[in-house]
């Protein structure tokens, strides 16, 4: 390991991503609250604005879980630690963003549908996804020492993602209440939403995507640094021999 290129060093691209992500979040917030027209009362009026958070969160959750799948396959093929880190990091982010989906949805649904929750296809599959990846994180967290948990987690990451279409089709056969071209006007949805709402929606989508990329980079970097700390500790222990009482550093 060279001394100049530290494994956790913040590169220029990393910094640019951070700036871009937060700038686009600011722009998107402006569009959402000051540009986008208020929606019809049937969609909740002002409440509909929560969808600029809700739908991009769902989008990012799926991106994150797809990332877990791809990184898990790559890890099993190559055995490279970085892929395991990417899968683990993406799973954490996926659970965070799908939690946001599961929290923001009911906040809107309660006044508009008159109920917090419906066992509708989209809601049910979102919950199944959340449980799948919560299980993935629990598996990693509760691993026995020295087990091959990275490989096992990769299996869960793969099996859980393959399951998505099955869950989708099977719960689809239940009644579906969820607005299908969500209240943000996808082109085919025949939605009444105009340009300002689309602007807000797509700016939010871009902001969330950049934010996800940045958070993933931050989380992977954290993992790299944690590995490095572990390696240095091990190295130090070996060099010190049978552990003389190591002086505790004054600063922690």
């Amino acid at each position: 390991m060279s001394t100049t290129a530290h494994p956790g060093a913040r590169t220029t691209g990393f910094r640019a991503l951070a700036v871009g992500a937060w700038a686009s979040v600011a722009v998107s917030l402006y569009f959402i609250f000051f540009v986008a027209r208020e929606a019809d009362a049937s969609m909740g009026g002002q409440l509909q604005r929560i969808f600029y958070l809700h739908v991009p969160s769902a989008w990012i959750a799926y991106i994150a879980f797809a990332t877990v799948f791809i990184a898990s396959v790559a890890y099993l093929r190559t055995g490279a630690r970085k892929w395991d880190l990417v899968a683990h990091s993406a799973a954490e982010l996926g659970v965070v963003f799908s939690s946001l989906v599961l929290i923001t949805g009911p906040i809107w649904a309660r006044p508009v549908w008159g109920t917090w929750w419906q066992w509708d296809a989209r809601l049910t599959s979102a919950l199944v996804m959340w449980l799948t990846y919560a299980g993935y994180l629990l598996l990693r967290g509760l691993a026995d020492d020295g087990s091959q948990i990275a490989r096992s987690a990769a299996i869960v990451g793969i099996a859980g993602f393959i399951n998505v279409p099955f869950v989708h089709f099977s719960v689809q056969w239940f009644r579906t209440l969820h607005p299908s071209g969500p209240a943000v006007g996808d082109a085919a949805g025949g939605s009444t939403l105009g340009g300002t709402e689309l602007l807000a929606f797509f700016s939010a989508l871009i902001a969330f995507t950049l934010l996800f990329a940045w958070l993933l980079a931050v989380r992977v970097r954290l993992g790299v640094l944690a590995d490095e700390v572990g390696r240095l500790e091990l190295e130090g222990d070996l060099a010190d021999g049978p552990r003389p009482a190591r002086p505790v550093p004054a600063t922690t």
Partner: peptide
């Protein structure tokens, strides 16, 4: 491979 085998199996298997 986990510390809570009996609990982890349903947690992992039920969603799938």
């Amino acid at each position: 491979q986990t510390r809570s085998r009996e609990l982890m199996l349903p947690v992992l298997a039920f969603p799938v």
